[in-house]
């Protein structure tokens, strides 16, 4: 029963919910709340899936007991025993598979990002011309701006970008990139990136990765608006996104709409719809529910006899005697 519920939760929150959230319009207007919801949902699904696998090994009540015991610092449960029966072995295999895959992906993704960043920093040190605190100019004609996190972080502008941006637009671009650095957006993107690498078939994780990447751009735009007007920022986006052929008259007349950049620019120039407190609160509650649900699922069955736990437990055994499961 509890196993079926947990599996159903993983299916709904991992497959159906992300499609809804990815299409929801409000995410663009509250990018930080939306990114938080994605992260909470991802963490929630991972822990509930682990819990479902644990239920194969022991009843939910026992799993809850163990969890509460550990929380209360009472030591391990009194009767650890060897796994018996195929379902218990299956549960253990699933748990170690999930943990192993996540850990391995985490290692691979973090190492690749760190290595690439170190390479960029090394290149920048030799090629770039430092022009201010944390700002480096690269002598390249293509207008571009980006930031290299780590080691204090650097904002990189090309000579081409300096040529096309007005001073006010330059302020907007710098504010946007500094918002990425101060908000540690590269770390926020890491969690969904690791999960999407570990479990690429799960719609929640792959969608969370693309959505969180989009949302941190919008969050950085919001912060940049403290230093620039929306029109100025939108103009700066357009100047740096200009295709190489835009300096000649464009021949294509196909109206390509709906890409992330279009949405980003239109969001700046079009007035934003007002959202009621109630709508905001309900969305906050959804995010909080995702975060709280795994904990509730594991502790609630055990909470009824919470008071007896430490009394019932015989003196705890040393860790070496216990099957680590």
């Amino acid at each position: 029963m509890s196993l079926a519920l947990l599996v159903a939760y993983v299916a709904v929150a991992g497959v159906l919910f992300p499609r809804q959230l990815a299409q929801a319009g409000w995410t663009s207007h509250a990018p930080r709340l939306a990114a938080g919801t994605w992260l909470a949902a991802a963490a929630s699904v991972v822990s509930v899936a682990l819990l479902a696998a644990a239920v194969l090994v022991a009843p939910l009540h026992t799993v809850g007991d163990v969890f509460v015991l550990l929380l209360q610092g009472c030591g391990w449960p009194p009767q650890p025993r060897a796994p018996a029966g195929p379902s218990e072995y299956a549960g253990l295999v699933i748990i170690s598979w999930m943990v192993g895959r996540t850990a391995y992906s985490g290692y691979v993704v973090c190492r690749a990002a760190r290595r690439e960043r170190r390479q960029h920093r090394c290149d920048l040190q030799l090629l770039g011309e430092p022009v201010g605190t944390g700002v480096v100019v690269l002598d390249h004609p293509q207008p571009s701006a980006f930031c290299v996190p780590g080691d204090g972080g650097h904002v990189v502008l090309t000579r081409g970008a300096l040529d096309v941006l007005s001073p006010a637009e330059l302020t907007a671009v710098l504010a946007h990139e500094r918002a990425h650095l101060s908000g540690r957006h590269h770390v926020i993107v890491l969690l969904p990136a690791i999960l999407a690498t570990a479990f690429p078939r799960m719609p929640l994780f792959t969608l969370a990765l693309s959505e969180v990447r989009r949302l941190v751009e919008l969050a950085a735009d919001d912060k940049a608006l403290r230093r620039a007007t929306p029109i100025t920022l939108a103009q700066a986006v357009l100047r740096l996104a200009a295709p190489a052929s835009a300096r000649h008259p464009a021949t294509s007349t196909l109206g390509a709409t709906g890409t992330a950049t279009t949405e980003r620019v239109l969001r700046l120039v079009a007035p934003q719809p007002r959202h009621t407190r109630l709508a905001l609160l309900s969305r906050l509650l959804v995010a909080a529910a995702f975060a709280a649900l795994p904990l509730a699922a594991v502790t609630l069955p055990a909470v009824t006899d919470l008071a007896y736990h430490c009394i019932e437990v015989t003196p705890s055994r040393p860790l070496a005697e216990v099957d680590l499961r």
Partner: peptide
């Protein structure tokens, strides 16, 4: 899958989209 190592201000758009915007 870059975007992990660095964060771009914006990617280059295609000409039609650029004109429309």
């Amino acid at each position: 899958d870059r975007g992990l190592a660095l964060l771009h201000f914006v990617d280059t758009m295609d000409p039609a989209e650029y004109e429309a915007l």
